[in-house]
Simulated scan of single mutants.
Amino acid sequence: MVSGIRAPLKIKGILTICVSLVVSFLGVSHAAEKAGELPVLFDLRERIARPDLSGLARLRFLTTVDFPPFNFIDQSGRLAGFHIDLAREICRELEIEDKCQIQAVTFGELQPALEGGQGEAVIAGIATKAELRQSFLFSRPYLHLPARFAANRQAMGEDMTVNGLNGKLIGTVAGTTHEAMLKSFFPKLDIASFADRPAMLAALRQKKVAAVFSDGMQLSFWTASAEAAGCCALLDGAYVSQRFLGEGLSIMNRRNEPALTQAIDHALLELSRKGRLNEIYLRYFPAGLF
């Protein structure tokens, strides 16, 4: 079994996943074959050789505890989440379970801990940026976090579709990639930009805007929350763009360990091919993000 779990931080609650989403991509995207399934990010005809890991003393995954449902402390006080299950499956696929550990640190400690040799891999939702690529290697992406529209039911009336947004005011957060993406993808929509996310969501709840455009995962949590009180729902359609949202979630390794990065890519491809990556995804996003 994967061992060595260390969790110095605590959180008080676990977000409830209650999402109702349908596939509809715009930009660089791959549609899932069935509603709710994880879009396939790998060419399943590809072959990635598994390097010899016999010389690997241990594989320590570094993560955090404050990014539910990806990594968090569950009600029993154990480290849990999508990333935790994915790390365990990678170790099983590589047949190195006895060498694997998962350690939790604060987000700010992730990069120094990896650089300092306190771990071999970071699996914590690190954004793949050009400056980081100068110092680290990254696995293939295993998940995109799409942008979504959430709309006020009363403000939208009977047409709860993206087409129904025409002529209505759409909210977003000023200065964000989602604002830029909205203006680029939907230049004809009337847009109102807000100082922060709480102000944007308050305007949506109060029908000052008919809909908002933001991070799909965060909107799925909010629309299902007591704060929203059933006022609003996600519209069909999920939007991804490497230009605006990056390459997706990846696992970060030190630059002097290309064989480990290749091994992780091999494991991710095999987990995708065998459907086990999709099983983990549906465990934490039962109705899907797309």
Results as ranks from 00 to 15, higher is better:
F107S: 10
F107V: 12
F107M: 09
G108C: 08
E109D: 14
Q111K: 15
A113N: 08
A113Q: 06
G117E: 02
Q118S: 11
A121T: 03
A121P: 07
I123H: 01
I123S: 02
G125F: 07
I126E: 11
A127I: 15
T128C: 14
T128W: 09
L132Y: 14
F136H: 09
L137T: 10
L137F: 11
F138M: 03
F138A: 03
P141R: 00
Y142Q: 00
H144D: 03
L145G: 05
L145W: 11
R148H: 15
F149C: 06
F149N: 01
A150F: 10
A150N: 12
A151M: 07
A151W: 00
N152V: 04
G157F: 00
M160E: 07
T161W: 01
V162C: 05
V162Q: 06
G164N: 12
L165P: 04
L165M: 11
K168N: 02
K168M: 01
I170R: 00
T172K: 01
V173W: 02
G175D: 08
T176Y: 08
H178M: 13
A180W: 04
A180S: 12
A180C: 03
A180G: 13
M181V: 09
M181K: 05
M181F: 15
F186I: 01
K188A: 13
I191Y: 01
A192G: 01
F194V: 06
A195S: 09
A199W: 02
L201G: 05
A202D: 13
L204H: 03
R205A: 06
K207D: 13
K207P: 10
V209H: 00
A211Q: 04
F213I: 08
S214K: 02
D215G: 15
D215I: 08
G216F: 05
L219I: 15
S220V: 10
S220Y: 06
S220W: 04
F221G: 06
W222T: 05
A224Y: 04
A224K: 02
A228Q: 07
A228V: 07
A229S: 13
G230P: 06
G230F: 13
C231T: 13
C231M: 10
A233K: 12
D236T: 11
G237F: 11
Y239S: 04
Y239F: 15
S241F: 05
S241V: 09
S241D: 10
R243E: 15
